[in-house]
């Protein structure tokens, strides 16, 4: 349970850290579009270089970034296998390797490599741009302020953002609580690691019930504490830190715009593929 790194934030002072969270949020969307636009080898190279550049600038340790890819190993392997072995080759393509019924084409290998690059860039890029360099509070603030237009159609944007903030805030608390309850039940001989599926599911009851009760208790306490400070939802609330755009906030949008433009242009003018 200690390894849960949901939205782990690494404080820092790089340009990526300092950029306004709203800008970063929009840039991430643009960046993802950029990745999916890349079609040729040159465009992929550009995306890769851009991602590495971002990672270097953010000064997040490379080992951490590689670790964030680890949970995806399975997906990466599966997609590679599918791409390599189920590649529908164009007419007249000569397979690289051929034995029994299996034919491996250069095209298939290429698509597999592109796929891996795409997934890796997607994960590394979004975590560098967003989760690793933006505090959860800044992130929910950004979401709230970007969703403000939806207020027109009476969506409770502030409440939604508040819910997210509270949820994020309580993740570590509940993890700690779970560990405590698990230790306590283990001390009474509870066994979580043996037996079949039903037995294991049943073994979770002594954890889940106290956890729910404590979550409700905390929710109650929090509600009272908020009410004591006269919280009554979003209307009329002002912010302590009003985010103002700084001149440096233009750099990241320019960078992502360059990726998109570069990908499109390279696709068109350097449509070189190894196949």
């Amino acid at each position: 349970m200690k390894d849960v790194t949901l939205g782990q934030f690494f404080p820092g002072n790089s340009i990526v850290h300092r950029t306004d969270a709203r800008i970063k949020l929009l840039c991430v969307i643009a960046y993802i579009v950029g990745i999916f636009l890349a079609k040729s080898a040159a465009a992929y190279a550009l995306v890769l270089v851009a991602t590495v550049l971002l990672a270097l600038v953010s000064s997040i340790p490379m080992s951490t970034l590689l670790k964030s890819l680890k949970p995806l190993t399975f997906i990466i392997i599966i997609t590679s296998i599918i791409n390599i072995f189920w590649y529908t080759a164009p007419e007249g393509a000569v397979p690289l390797v051929e034995f029994w019924k299996i034919k491996i084409y250069a095209g298939g290998l290429m698509t597999a490599v592109y796929m891996i690059l795409r997934i890796a860039c997607l994960i590394v890029g979004t975590s560098v741009l967003l989760t690793y360099t933006t505090s959860p509070i800044a992130l929910t603030d950004a979401i709230e302020s970007l969703l403000v237009p939806l207020k027109i159609i009476k969506l409770p944007v502030h409440e939604f953002a508040m819910m997210m903030t509270i949820a994020l805030r309580f993740i570590p608390t509940l993890i700690e609580e779970t560990n405590k309850i698990m230790a306590a039940q283990k001390s009474r001989g509870a066994d979580f690691s043996s037996g079949g599926l039903t037995k294991r599911a049943k073994a979770m009851i002594p954890i889940i019930i106290p956890l729910f009760i404590s979550a409700f208790r905390r929710a109650d306490d929090l509600a009272i504490a908020m009410e004591c400070r006269c919280y009554r939802g979003g209307s009329g609330r002002t912010k302590m830190n009003i985010k103002k755009l700084a001149p440096t906030d233009i750099l990241l949008p320019l960078f992502t715009a360059a990726i998109i433009a570069g990908a499109v242009l390279l696709n068109k003018f350097v449509p070189f593929n190894i196949v």
Binding site: K180, I181, A184, S187, R188, G189, I205, P206, P210
Partner: peptide
């Protein structure tokens, strides 16, 4: 190790929070 725990009763802080 599980049988050891039957011999060493451990009552945590605020044990009432583990009642279920």
């Amino acid at each position: 190790i599980r049988s050891v725990r039957f011999n060493v009763g451990l009552v945590f802080q605020y044990p009432e929070y583990q009642l279920f």
